[in-house]
Simulated assay, not measured.
Amino acid sequence: MALKPSLRDVLPAEFQDAARTALASREDATTGMPWFVRVLIGFGAWLASWFLMAFLSLGVVVGKEVGAIILGLLLTGGAAILRRMGSNVFLTQLALSTGLAGQGLFIGGVWALTESEKVAALATLVLQTVLLFVYPDAIQRFLSTLFGGLALLLLLRLTGTGVLVDVTLVGLTVLAHLLFLQQGRLQSGPWGGLVTPAAFGLVTTLLASLVMRTWFHDFYRSLFRKGSAELPPGVLTLGLAVVTLYSAWRVLEETDSEPGGAAGVTAFASLGLTAALTLHTPGVIAAIGVLLLGFHRRSVVLLGMAVLFVLVFGVGYYYDLQLTLLAKSLVLLGSGLMLLGLRFFILRRFPAAEEVR
Protein backbone atom coordinates (compact mmCIF):
# COMPACT_ATOMS: atom_id res chain seq x y z
CA MET A 1 0.00 0.00 0.00
CA ALA A 2 1.39 3.42 -0.95
CA LEU A 3 2.18 5.86 1.83
CA LYS A 4 0.96 8.79 -0.28
CA PRO A 5 -2.50 8.07 -1.73
CA SER A 6 -3.61 10.10 -4.74
CA LEU A 7 -6.63 12.40 -4.89
CA ARG A 8 -8.41 9.67 -6.83
CA ASP A 9 -8.00 7.33 -3.85
CA VAL A 10 -9.26 9.67 -1.14
CA LEU A 11 -11.83 11.95 -2.81
CA PRO A 12 -15.01 11.33 -4.81
CA ALA A 13 -14.81 12.24 -8.50
CA GLU A 14 -16.90 15.41 -8.14
CA PHE A 15 -14.42 16.93 -5.65
CA GLN A 16 -11.15 16.09 -7.42
CA ASP A 17 -11.06 19.06 -9.82
CA ALA A 18 -11.74 21.54 -7.01
CA ALA A 19 -9.01 19.96 -4.90
CA ARG A 20 -6.47 20.18 -7.73
CA THR A 21 -7.34 23.85 -8.25
CA ALA A 22 -6.90 24.58 -4.52
CA LEU A 23 -3.53 22.82 -4.44
CA ALA A 24 -2.32 24.68 -7.51
CA SER A 25 -3.31 28.03 -6.01
CA ARG A 26 -1.16 27.34 -2.94
CA GLU A 27 2.03 26.77 -4.92
CA ASP A 28 4.47 29.64 -4.60
CA ALA A 29 7.19 30.96 -6.86
CA THR A 30 9.85 28.80 -5.22
CA THR A 31 8.29 25.49 -6.29
CA GLY A 32 10.57 25.13 -9.30
CA MET A 33 13.63 26.57 -7.58
CA PRO A 34 16.52 24.11 -7.07
CA TRP A 35 16.88 22.96 -3.49
CA PHE A 36 20.47 24.19 -3.12
CA VAL A 37 19.41 27.70 -4.17
CA ARG A 38 16.76 27.73 -1.45
CA VAL A 39 19.32 26.48 1.07
CA LEU A 40 21.74 29.27 0.14
CA ILE A 41 19.00 31.90 0.32
CA GLY A 42 17.89 30.65 3.72
CA PHE A 43 21.48 30.54 4.98
CA GLY A 44 21.99 34.14 3.85
CA ALA A 45 18.88 35.23 5.72
CA TRP A 46 19.99 33.51 8.94
CA LEU A 47 23.52 34.94 8.65
CA ALA A 48 22.23 38.48 8.11
CA SER A 49 19.84 38.27 11.06
CA TRP A 50 22.52 36.95 13.43
CA PHE A 51 24.94 39.72 12.49
CA LEU A 52 22.16 42.19 13.27
CA MET A 53 21.49 40.50 16.61
CA ALA A 54 25.17 40.61 17.56
CA PHE A 55 25.37 44.34 16.75
CA LEU A 56 22.23 45.17 18.72
CA SER A 57 23.24 42.99 21.65
CA LEU A 58 26.59 44.74 22.05
CA GLY A 59 24.98 48.18 22.07
CA VAL A 60 21.74 47.64 23.95
CA VAL A 61 21.55 44.34 25.80
CA VAL A 62 24.82 43.72 27.64
CA GLY A 63 24.11 44.36 31.33
CA LYS A 64 20.66 45.77 30.60
CA GLU A 65 17.95 43.19 31.24
CA VAL A 66 15.05 45.58 30.58
CA GLY A 67 16.61 46.50 27.25
CA ALA A 68 16.85 42.82 26.34
CA ILE A 69 13.17 42.31 27.15
CA ILE A 70 12.04 45.34 25.12
CA LEU A 71 14.33 44.55 22.18
CA GLY A 72 13.24 40.91 22.22
CA LEU A 73 9.56 41.88 22.03
CA LEU A 74 10.26 44.37 19.24
CA LEU A 75 12.19 41.82 17.22
CA THR A 76 9.56 39.13 17.74
CA GLY A 77 6.73 41.47 16.74
CA GLY A 78 8.71 42.77 13.75
CA ALA A 79 9.38 39.21 12.62
CA ALA A 80 5.65 38.40 12.74
CA ILE A 81 4.88 41.49 10.63
CA LEU A 82 7.70 40.69 8.19
CA ARG A 83 6.43 37.11 7.78
CA ARG A 84 3.00 38.41 6.81
CA MET A 85 4.50 40.59 4.07
CA GLY A 86 5.53 37.68 1.85
CA SER A 87 6.23 33.98 1.56
CA ASN A 88 9.49 33.78 -0.40
CA VAL A 89 12.40 31.84 1.06
CA PHE A 90 14.51 34.83 2.11
CA LEU A 91 11.69 36.63 3.93
CA THR A 92 10.43 33.53 5.72
CA GLN A 93 13.88 32.49 6.91
CA LEU A 94 14.87 36.05 7.87
CA ALA A 95 11.66 36.46 9.85
CA LEU A 96 12.06 33.05 11.51
CA SER A 97 15.67 33.59 12.57
CA THR A 98 14.99 37.14 13.76
CA GLY A 99 11.93 36.00 15.67
CA LEU A 100 13.79 33.18 17.39
CA ALA A 101 16.56 35.57 18.39
CA GLY A 102 13.95 37.98 19.75
CA GLN A 103 12.31 35.22 21.76
CA GLY A 104 15.68 34.24 23.20
CA LEU A 105 16.43 37.86 24.19
CA PHE A 106 13.02 38.26 25.82
CA ILE A 107 13.14 35.00 27.81
CA GLY A 108 16.77 35.50 28.79
CA GLY A 109 16.05 39.06 29.87
CA VAL A 110 13.10 37.97 32.02
CA TRP A 111 15.19 35.27 33.67
CA ALA A 112 18.12 37.65 34.31
CA LEU A 113 15.85 40.37 35.68
CA THR A 114 13.79 38.18 38.02
CA GLU A 115 16.34 35.39 38.67
CA SER A 116 13.36 33.06 38.80
CA GLU A 117 12.95 29.93 36.69
CA LYS A 118 9.23 29.97 37.40
CA VAL A 119 8.74 33.47 35.97
CA ALA A 120 10.89 32.64 32.94
CA ALA A 121 8.86 29.47 32.27
CA LEU A 122 5.60 31.41 32.62
CA ALA A 123 6.87 34.14 30.26
CA THR A 124 7.86 31.48 27.74
CA LEU A 125 4.44 29.84 27.94
CA VAL A 126 2.59 33.14 27.42
CA LEU A 127 4.83 34.28 24.56
CA GLN A 128 4.66 30.98 22.68
CA THR A 129 0.87 30.79 23.09
CA VAL A 130 0.52 34.22 21.48
CA LEU A 131 2.93 33.34 18.65
CA LEU A 132 1.08 30.11 17.96
CA PHE A 133 -1.94 32.12 16.84
CA VAL A 134 -0.42 35.30 15.38
CA TYR A 135 2.70 34.02 13.56
CA PRO A 136 1.63 32.48 10.20
CA ASP A 137 4.46 30.00 9.75
CA ALA A 138 4.35 26.22 10.20
CA ILE A 139 7.90 25.93 11.58
CA GLN A 140 7.34 28.68 14.16
CA ARG A 141 4.01 27.16 15.18
CA PHE A 142 5.69 23.80 15.65
CA LEU A 143 8.43 25.40 17.75
CA SER A 144 5.90 27.46 19.71
CA THR A 145 3.95 24.32 20.58
CA LEU A 146 7.14 22.48 21.55
CA PHE A 147 8.60 25.33 23.64
CA GLY A 148 5.22 26.13 25.18
CA GLY A 149 4.57 22.50 26.09
CA LEU A 150 7.99 22.07 27.67
CA ALA A 151 7.60 25.39 29.53
CA LEU A 152 4.22 24.25 30.87
CA LEU A 153 5.65 20.97 32.13
CA LEU A 154 8.64 22.75 33.67
CA LEU A 155 6.37 25.29 35.37
CA LEU A 156 4.26 22.50 36.82
CA ARG A 157 7.39 20.68 37.99
CA LEU A 158 8.60 23.80 39.78
CA THR A 159 5.27 24.76 41.38
CA GLY A 160 3.06 21.67 41.52
CA THR A 161 3.39 17.97 42.20
CA GLY A 162 4.86 15.22 40.09
CA VAL A 163 1.43 13.60 39.80
CA LEU A 164 0.05 16.79 38.21
CA VAL A 165 2.92 16.80 35.72
CA ASP A 166 2.23 13.22 34.66
CA VAL A 167 -1.52 13.87 34.38
CA THR A 168 -0.77 16.92 32.22
CA LEU A 169 1.53 14.80 30.05
CA VAL A 170 -1.29 12.33 29.45
CA GLY A 171 -3.58 15.28 28.67
CA LEU A 172 -1.13 16.60 26.06
CA THR A 173 -1.04 13.09 24.58
CA VAL A 174 -4.83 13.05 24.32
CA LEU A 175 -4.76 16.44 22.58
CA ALA A 176 -2.09 15.31 20.10
CA HIS A 177 -4.04 12.15 19.20
CA LEU A 178 -7.28 14.10 18.77
CA LEU A 179 -5.59 16.63 16.48
CA PHE A 180 -4.28 13.87 14.22
CA LEU A 181 -7.52 11.88 14.30
CA GLN A 182 -9.60 14.99 13.45
CA GLN A 183 -6.95 16.52 11.20
CA GLY A 184 -9.05 16.64 8.03
CA ARG A 185 -12.06 18.25 9.69
CA LEU A 186 -10.08 20.74 11.76
CA GLN A 187 -7.96 21.93 8.83
CA SER A 188 -11.07 23.22 7.10
CA GLY A 189 -11.80 25.53 10.07
CA PRO A 190 -10.59 29.08 10.73
CA TRP A 191 -7.45 27.89 12.53
CA GLY A 192 -6.67 25.03 10.14
CA GLY A 193 -3.13 26.25 9.54
CA LEU A 194 -1.98 25.50 13.07
CA VAL A 195 -3.48 22.00 13.42
CA THR A 196 -0.64 19.98 11.88
CA PRO A 197 2.34 21.93 13.35
CA ALA A 198 0.66 21.97 16.77
CA ALA A 199 0.06 18.20 16.59
CA PHE A 200 3.70 17.54 15.68
CA GLY A 201 4.83 19.89 18.44
CA LEU A 202 2.76 18.05 21.03
CA VAL A 203 4.09 14.66 19.88
CA THR A 204 7.67 15.96 20.10
CA THR A 205 6.96 17.36 23.58
CA LEU A 206 5.61 13.99 24.70
CA LEU A 207 8.51 11.96 23.34
CA ALA A 208 11.17 14.41 24.58
CA SER A 209 9.67 14.38 28.09
CA LEU A 210 9.57 10.59 28.15
CA VAL A 211 13.20 10.42 26.98
CA MET A 212 14.13 12.66 29.92
CA ARG A 213 12.15 10.46 32.29
CA THR A 214 13.62 7.22 30.93
CA TRP A 215 17.26 8.04 30.25
CA PHE A 216 17.93 11.00 32.58
CA HIS A 217 15.66 10.21 35.48
CA ASP A 218 17.93 11.63 38.16
CA PHE A 219 18.08 15.00 36.42
CA TYR A 220 14.35 14.77 35.68
CA ARG A 221 13.63 14.23 39.36
CA SER A 222 15.87 17.16 40.35
CA LEU A 223 13.50 19.55 38.54
CA PHE A 224 10.66 18.75 40.95
CA ARG A 225 10.06 20.52 44.20
CA LYS A 226 11.62 18.80 47.18
CA GLY A 227 9.45 15.95 48.43
CA SER A 228 7.20 15.98 45.36
CA ALA A 229 6.12 12.50 44.29
CA GLU A 230 5.43 11.41 40.71
CA LEU A 231 3.17 8.72 39.36
CA PRO A 232 4.64 5.21 39.25
CA PRO A 233 5.82 4.35 35.73
CA GLY A 234 3.21 1.60 35.47
CA VAL A 235 0.34 4.02 36.10
CA LEU A 236 1.65 6.44 33.47
CA THR A 237 2.04 3.54 31.04
CA LEU A 238 -1.57 2.50 31.59
CA GLY A 239 -2.75 6.07 30.99
CA LEU A 240 -0.85 6.29 27.71
CA ALA A 241 -2.10 2.81 26.77
CA VAL A 242 -5.72 3.93 27.20
CA VAL A 243 -5.08 6.84 24.81
CA THR A 244 -3.47 4.49 22.27
CA LEU A 245 -6.33 2.00 22.53
CA TYR A 246 -8.85 4.80 21.97
CA SER A 247 -6.98 5.91 18.84
CA ALA A 248 -6.90 2.32 17.59
CA TRP A 249 -10.66 2.10 18.09
CA ARG A 250 -11.19 5.33 16.12
CA VAL A 251 -8.89 4.17 13.32
CA LEU A 252 -10.81 0.90 13.03
CA GLU A 253 -14.06 2.83 12.77
CA GLU A 254 -12.68 5.17 10.09
CA THR A 255 -11.43 2.22 8.03
CA ASP A 256 -14.84 0.49 8.22
CA SER A 257 -13.49 -2.30 10.41
CA GLU A 258 -15.54 -3.68 13.29
CA PRO A 259 -13.78 -2.88 16.60
CA GLY A 260 -15.45 -5.89 18.15
CA GLY A 261 -14.46 -8.19 15.31
CA ALA A 262 -11.41 -10.36 14.91
CA ALA A 263 -9.23 -7.48 13.63
CA GLY A 264 -10.23 -5.20 16.49
CA VAL A 265 -9.73 -7.83 19.17
CA THR A 266 -6.31 -8.71 17.74
CA ALA A 267 -5.23 -5.05 17.67
CA PHE A 268 -6.46 -4.35 21.19
CA ALA A 269 -4.91 -7.54 22.57
CA SER A 270 -1.57 -6.73 20.94
CA LEU A 271 -1.51 -3.19 22.32
CA GLY A 272 -2.59 -4.35 25.75
CA LEU A 273 0.06 -7.07 25.83
CA THR A 274 2.75 -4.57 24.78
CA ALA A 275 1.72 -2.17 27.54
CA ALA A 276 1.72 -4.98 30.10
CA LEU A 277 5.21 -6.11 29.11
CA THR A 278 6.66 -2.57 29.24
CA LEU A 279 4.98 -1.20 32.36
CA HIS A 280 8.22 0.34 33.62
CA THR A 281 8.96 2.08 30.30
CA PRO A 282 5.97 4.26 29.32
CA GLY A 283 7.76 5.57 26.25
CA VAL A 284 7.28 2.27 24.39
CA ILE A 285 3.48 2.39 24.27
CA ALA A 286 3.60 6.15 23.63
CA ALA A 287 5.86 5.65 20.59
CA ILE A 288 3.62 2.82 19.33
CA GLY A 289 0.66 5.20 19.57
CA VAL A 290 2.56 7.68 17.41
CA LEU A 291 3.38 4.84 15.00
CA LEU A 292 -0.34 4.07 14.76
CA LEU A 293 -1.13 7.69 13.93
CA GLY A 294 1.68 7.79 11.37
CA PHE A 295 0.30 4.79 9.48
CA HIS A 296 -3.23 6.13 9.68
CA ARG A 297 -2.28 9.59 8.37
CA ARG A 298 0.28 8.27 5.86
CA SER A 299 2.88 10.61 7.39
CA VAL A 300 6.45 9.61 6.62
CA VAL A 301 7.81 12.11 9.16
CA LEU A 302 5.57 10.77 11.92
CA LEU A 303 6.51 7.20 11.02
CA GLY A 304 10.21 8.06 11.14
CA MET A 305 9.85 9.72 14.55
CA ALA A 306 7.90 6.74 15.88
CA VAL A 307 10.38 4.13 14.66
CA LEU A 308 13.33 6.11 16.05
CA PHE A 309 11.76 6.49 19.49
CA VAL A 310 10.52 2.90 19.60
CA LEU A 311 14.18 1.88 19.28
CA VAL A 312 15.27 4.47 21.88
CA PHE A 313 12.67 3.36 24.41
CA GLY A 314 13.28 -0.30 23.56
CA VAL A 315 16.91 0.10 24.60
CA GLY A 316 15.74 1.91 27.73
CA TYR A 317 13.38 -0.97 28.50
CA TYR A 318 16.25 -3.44 28.22
CA TYR A 319 18.49 -1.48 30.60
CA ASP A 320 15.61 -0.83 33.00
CA LEU A 321 15.05 -4.52 33.63
CA GLN A 322 16.31 -5.42 37.11
CA LEU A 323 17.52 -8.82 35.94
CA THR A 324 20.74 -10.62 35.20
CA LEU A 325 22.12 -10.55 31.69
CA LEU A 326 21.01 -14.14 31.14
CA ALA A 327 17.47 -13.38 32.26
CA LYS A 328 17.40 -10.27 30.05
CA SER A 329 18.49 -12.30 27.05
CA LEU A 330 15.74 -14.84 27.72
CA VAL A 331 13.18 -12.03 28.02
CA LEU A 332 14.27 -10.54 24.69
CA LEU A 333 14.27 -13.95 23.04
CA GLY A 334 10.80 -14.74 24.36
CA SER A 335 9.34 -11.37 23.41
CA GLY A 336 10.88 -11.63 19.92
CA LEU A 337 9.40 -15.08 19.38
CA MET A 338 6.04 -13.84 20.65
CA LEU A 339 6.06 -10.90 18.22
CA LEU A 340 7.07 -13.15 15.32
CA GLY A 341 4.23 -15.50 16.23
CA LEU A 342 1.81 -12.56 16.36
CA ARG A 343 2.98 -11.43 12.93
CA PHE A 344 2.49 -14.93 11.52
CA PHE A 345 -1.00 -15.08 13.03
CA ILE A 346 -1.96 -11.67 11.58
CA LEU A 347 -0.68 -12.55 8.10
CA ARG A 348 -2.59 -15.85 8.14
CA ARG A 349 -5.76 -14.44 9.71
CA PHE A 350 -5.86 -11.15 7.78
CA PRO A 351 -4.10 -11.61 4.40
CA ALA A 352 -3.33 -8.33 2.65
CA ALA A 353 -5.49 -7.54 -0.31
CA GLU A 354 -3.77 -7.41 -3.68
CA GLU A 355 -2.97 -3.89 -4.79
CA VAL A 356 -5.10 -2.75 -7.74
CA ARG A 357 -2.98 -1.08 -10.41
Rank of each mutant, 00 (worst) to 15 (best):
P136M: 00
H177S: 03
L277E: 00
V315N: 10
E230D: 03
D166W: 06
G304E: 02
T196V: 14
F106G: 05
F106M: 06
G294S: 06
Y318N: 07
R185G: 06
A13E: 07
L340H: 09
V66E: 10
A262S: 09
F147I: 02
A138E: 12
V39L: 14
L175G: 02
A241H: 00
L323D: 05
L333S: 13
E27P: 01
L164Q: 07
W35E: 14
L186C: 07
G78F: 05
W215D: 06
G314R: 08
T76V: 10
D218W: 14
P351I: 10
T21Q: 10
G77I: 04
M1R: 10
T161C: 06
W111F: 12
L100E: 05
A80N: 03
L347R: 15
G72Y: 07
V10A: 00
V301W: 08
D17N: 11
L339K: 09
A120R: 03
D218S: 11
F133V: 09
L323W: 04
G148E: 08
L238P: 05
G162A: 02
L337G: 13
F224I: 04
L74Y: 05
F43L: 14
G201E: 00
D9R: 13
E117F: 15
W46T: 11
A138D: 05
T324G: 15
I81G: 00
F55A: 12
A95Y: 01
G44C: 09
V89Q: 02
S222I: 04
T281Y: 10
V174F: 06
R357G: 14
L311Q: 08
L340C: 14
A306Y: 02
Q103M: 14
L175F: 12
A45I: 05
L175T: 12
A123T: 02
V66H: 05
E230N: 13
G102L: 08
L156P: 00
R213K: 15
F350I: 14
S209Y: 10
P197V: 09
G304K: 05
D137M: 06
L172V: 08
E27V: 11
G104L: 11
A54C: 03
P232V: 09
I346E: 05
L321R: 09
S188Y: 09
L113H: 15
A208K: 03
A267G: 09
T161S: 14
A352K: 03
F15W: 12
P34F: 13
T92V: 13
S6M: 10
G336L: 09
P5G: 01
L96S: 03
S335Y: 12
Y246Q: 04
G67P: 00
L58P: 04
G239F: 11
L323K: 03
Q187C: 08
F309W: 07
S97K: 03
W35D: 11
T124A: 08
V315F: 08
V195L: 06
F313L: 05
R185E: 04
L238K: 01
L125G: 04
W50E: 04
L273V: 04
V315G: 07
K4F: 11
G192R: 06
L186Q: 07
L325P: 03
V62S: 15
V310D: 02
P12L: 09
G108L: 07
L40S: 13
